[in-house]
């Protein structure tokens, strides 16, 4: 555990809490892609199956359970509790275009051809692209509420900090997880354009982020 990794995990936690609290307090999930949230719940579910097979640390176990619980709570709020506010007309990204290549790739490129390893690889690849329905939705509507952009900012920050964590681990413990690093870098690239808009628009006091 290093400071980048810890800060990355905290950013990830903050992002998920921001989204959950926003939906709960506004009693609305307008502007939120339910599809992205289902994909994230799928990411956590397939990655954290090792909860049943290995014990890494109390921190690891607790964080995994918290992420799982919060991602399912988010999906529940969007599709059950506040489903009449769900903006399905603008959440039209075709997730099968993500799932099919990701499933194929996880069978081709993995560390071991075992069910748990293939599912772990699937979760890593899927996480890299899971935000695309949300970014697609923002592009389609041309705007995002500032709280949604704060959520995306912390999610992107988490990815950037994980890259710093991998650089640190590479130099201090010669750790290099090729699958995680390559897809992590790809994932971070998706946030770059958004980061630019966030800094130039949202942080300068706009209530909404309107796309140029």
């Amino acid at each position: 555990m290093n400071v980048f990794r810890l800060a990355g995990d905290v950013s990830h936690l903050v992002a998920i809490i921001i989204l959950l609290v926003k939906i709960w307090r506004s009693k609305s999930c307008a502007g939120i892609s339910g599809k992205s949230q289902v994909l994230f719940a799928l990411v956590f579910t397939t990655r954290y199956l090792d909860l049943f097979t290995v014990f890494i640390s109390a921190y690891n176990t607790i964080m995994k359970v918290v992420f799982l619980a919060m991602s399912y709570a988010t999906v529940y709020l969007i599709y059950m509790r506040f489903r009449n506010m769900y903006d399905s007309e603008n959440d039209t990204f075709r997730v099968e275009f993500l799932l099919v290549p990701v499933i194929g790739l996880s069978f081709l490129e993995n560390y071991a051809f075992t069910p748990l390893e293939i599912l772990w690889t699937f979760s890593i690849f899927l996480e890299a692209v899971a935000i695309m329905p949300q970014l697609f939705m923002i592009t389609k509507t041309g705007e995002a509420e500032s709280i949604t952009t704060h959520y995306l900012f912390f999610l992107g920050l988490y990815r950037a900090l994980y890259i710093a964590n991998w650089v640190w681990r590479y130099h201090t413990e010669e750790f290099f997880d090729q699958i995680a690093v390559v897809s992590g870098v790809v994932q971070t690239i998706f946030y770059c354009d958004f980061f630019y808009l966030y800094v130039t628009r949202v942080l300068r006091g706009k209530a909404k982020m309107i796309l140029p």
């Binding site: 090792d50 290995v54 890494i56 992420f67 772990w120 750790f175 290099f176 699958i179």
Partner: peptide, 10 residues
């Protein structure tokens, strides 16, 4: 070198 399970990151 390839990383080996268990995966200790979240």
């Amino acid at each position: 070198e390839k990383g080996e399970p268990p995966h200790d990151e979240l």
